[in-house]
Design a protein around this nucleic acid. Structure first.
Lengths: 200, 200
DNA sequence: CGCGTTATTAACAGTTCTGTTATTAACACG
DNA sequence: CGTGTTAATAACAGAACTGTTAATAACGCG
C-alpha cells in the first residue's frame, strides 16, 4: 500500500490533529506517544512527521487551534460593542470549555507543569484574560473587605471554571458515570453564575 | 569511589525521596527522568534502583509519604473528639497543602491524567475526603436553591483549595514573584474562610 | 502515455531512558 | 585479622520512542 485511491490530505491532516488533541489531553505531552496518535488517526507514525515536523510542533499546532477558537470568541464578544464584563467573560468561557473540554484539559497539564512550551500560543489568550481581569478588579469594592482581595476572587473563579473538568475520583464518584450532559451544563453554569453574584 | 566513610543509608534514602518528590511535582511522572532525580539527590542513578526497585515504585513511595501525612492529619482531627466539620476539613487541608505544596502539585498531575497509577495510595485519602463530603452535603439546605447543588459547592471549594498552587502565568502575574509568604497564607486562608461562609 | 509530484508505508537509524551487573571501599564482627 | 555484608559507582545491556529514508501507488498534466 502506498497512496490510496481516496487520498485526502486536508482530511488526513485534520484526523491527525484530532487524534493528537485527544491523546495530549489524555496523557499530557510527555505521556503521549507518537505511535499512539498515529494509531488513533489510522495512519503510520511516519506520516505524522510528514505533516508536522516533530512532536513539539504537532503539539504547538494542537494548542494553537484550541486557543485560536478562544481568541475568536473574545474578539466576537468585544466587537459586539457593549463593554465586556467579567461576568460575560467567565460564562462565555465556560460555554467554550464545555464545547471543547480538551482545551481545559490541556490547560490543566500546562498549569501543572508551569513551563512555557506553549506560552507563545497562549500569549494572546492570557493577554485577553488579563485585560478582563482588570475589569474584574475594577468591579470589586475598594478597599477590599476581609477575604475579598480581587486576586483571590479571580483564583477561586478560575477554579470554579476549570476544576469540574478534572478527572478526579471524588468528582467522578459524586456525579456518576457521565457528568457532561446538557442538564449538567445548565446546572454547573447556574452555579458559576451564583458564585459570581456572591463574589463580585 | 565506592562506600564512603560517612555512609548513612537512612539519610541517603530520604534524600532520594526528597529529590524524587521535587522532580515528580515539577515535571509529572512521565516528565521526570531517573537521572534527574539522582543528580538532585547527589548520587548515581543506579542507586535509585538499589533503594527503590523501579521508577513506578519510587513514585508510589513518594505519594504514600505525602498522603500518609494527610491521613495522619485526618485521624488527629477525628480523634480530637469534636465532630469534624466540613469547614475544619477544608481549612486544615489548606494548611497542610501550604506546608507541603508538592502534595497538591502531584495531585494536580494525577487529576489531569485521571489514571489510577496511585489510586491505591490515595484511596484512604479519598475515603476520608468522601466521608467529610457527606458532612458537607448534610450542611447544605435541601432542596438546593438555584445554583447551590452541594456537589457543585464541593467542586468550587476544591478549586479554591488547589488552584492557588497552580503554576499559571496569570496567577504568577497577579501575585508577583513569590506568592508563598506567610502573609499570603493568611490572606488566602481568610478568603477560603469567607467563601465557606458564603457557600455553606 | 509518460513523467514528475504527492500521500503513504515499512523498515531502519539514532537517541534517550530504565534497569542490571561487576567492582570496590568501608564496616562489622567472629 | 580476615571474611561476609553493605552502600555506592561506573559501565553496560535492553527497551522504548522519535525521527529518517527508500520504495511505491495513485494522480495530474503536458
Amino acid at each position: 500500500m502506498a497512496r490510496p485511491k481516496d487520498a485526502n490530505p486536508e482530511r488526513t491532516r485534520a484526523n491527525i490533529l484530532d487524534a493528537a488533541e485527544e491523546e495530549f489531553a489524555d496523557q499530557g505531552f510527555h505521556g503521549t506517544r507518537m505511535v499512539a496518535i498515529a494509531k488513533r488517526a489510522g495512519v503510520t507514525h511516519g506520516l505524522l512527521h510528514y505533516y508536522f515536523d516533530s512532536k513539539d510542533r504537532l503539539y504547538e499546532e494542537v494548542v494553537a487551534r484550541l486557543f485560536g477558537r478562544h481568541q475568536q470568541l473574545f474578539e466576537r464578544l468585544i466587537s459586539e460593542g457593549n463593554r465586556l464584563t467579567a461576568r460575560d467573560l467567565v460564562l462565555e468561557s465556560f460555554d467554550l470549555f464545555w464545547a471543547h473540554p480538551n482545551q481545559v484539559r490541556i490547560m490543566l497539564w500546562e498549569m501543572a507543569s508551569g513551563d512555557d512550551r506553549v506560552e507563545r500560543s497562549m500569549k494572546t489568550f492570557y493577554h485577553t484574560m488579563s485585560g478582563a481581569l482588570t475589569g474584574l478588579t475594577a468591579d470589586a469594592p475598594s478597599p477590599p473587605e476581609q477575604g475579598r482581595d480581587p486576586r483571590d476572587v479571580y483564583v477561586s473563579i478560575l477554579g470554579a471554571l476549570v476544576v469540574y473538568f478534572f478527572r478526579d475520583p471524588t468528582i467522578k464518584q459524586l456525579f456518576g458515570a457521565n457528568r457532561f450532559t446538557d442538564e449538567d451544563r445548565k446546572r454547573r453554569r447556574a452555579h458559576i453564575g451564583a458564585l459570581l453574584d456572591l463574589l463580585l
